[in-house]
Design a protein around this nucleic acid. Sequence first.
DNA 1: AGGAAGATCTACT
DNA 2: GTAGATCTTCCTA
Length: 193
Amino acid sequence: MKTLPRSFYARDPAAAARELLGKILVRRLTGHVLSGKIVETEAYYGENDPASKAYRGRKPFNEPMFREAGKTFIYMVHGNWLLNIVAHQEGEVGAVLIRALEPLQGIEVMKRNREAENLKALTSGPGRLTKALAITRDLNGVDVTDSHSDLTVVEGSFVESFEVCTSHRIGVKADLPQKLRFYVKANPFVSRS
DNA sequence: AGGAAGATCTACT
DNA sequence: GTAGATCTTCCTA
């Protein structure tokens, strides 16, 4: 399957977040491949977005959000690693948080990583999916547009516009007026409707 | 040093 | 479905 090019991420974070629905996140481990369809995302901006990690300016840890689109930005919240893909136009700041996947390949390995059997809870949440796919800070800054990376995003199924739902972002203290969360309607792996 | 943070799990009403 | 404990970094003082 074709790996998404950097130009895919070099645009408004909300547009990239919307278009990532239906794409396949691929995690390569020695010996096996884990993958899942992206069914829920959120867009984050820079200094004008109070919920963004970049809100208070450039810091060593949020540096990736200011740098090249198409690379990962991974950080820990409440003991969970959260996976973002940097997405913004040239000179801007932003990223897309991957919030939920529909498991495709390597389900048994994901269950082992998660130490849980329940398929529906395997990757239906930003902290759950990183644990299932063994994503940690080690993968921070990885280029997901490079087909040789341990983590990439490839073409998947097209999601019709009537299947896309939007809402305000989950768990944020101060949200923007726009709805920046995108998810696939009626998909059982969405973290919540 | 202390606390907040884009969450999750468990144990209940 | 909601409530409380706990998870581990990074920020602020």
